[in-house]
Amino acid sequence: MTYRAFKPASLLVLVALTVSPASAGTPPVGAASCSGCHRPDGSGTVPDLGNLTTDEIVAAVAAYRKGERPATVMDRLAKGFTDEEIRAIAAWLTQGPSAKP
């Protein structure tokens, strides 16, 4: 009985996932540009963001913005994003390969 009661709910979840990948696939503001340099198969000079956690990315960008972390270009780019934007980008970048372009 418990199982039967649960089943329709899980079906609904499935339906919701099937209907809305469009919005899940649309990257948050600014996120599409990151892969211009950061790639899983990229060179060691530029880190693969997929190896980091959301909090690590947020903290790194905050430090770049304050000039507290050595940088070449990221200190300049970090100033173009709000805290909320950085958190959304970081969450999106770390949510798994299937959701990323």
């Binding site: 340099c37 990229g42 060179s43 000079t45 070449t72």
Partner: peptide
């Protein structure tokens, strides 16, 4: 020197992508 290395790294990354 680091930016020269990044120039080449960027080219590899973008062309692979």
């Amino acid at each position: 020197a680091e930016e020269a290395r990044q120039a080449e790294a960027w080219f590899e990354t973008i062309t692979r992508a």
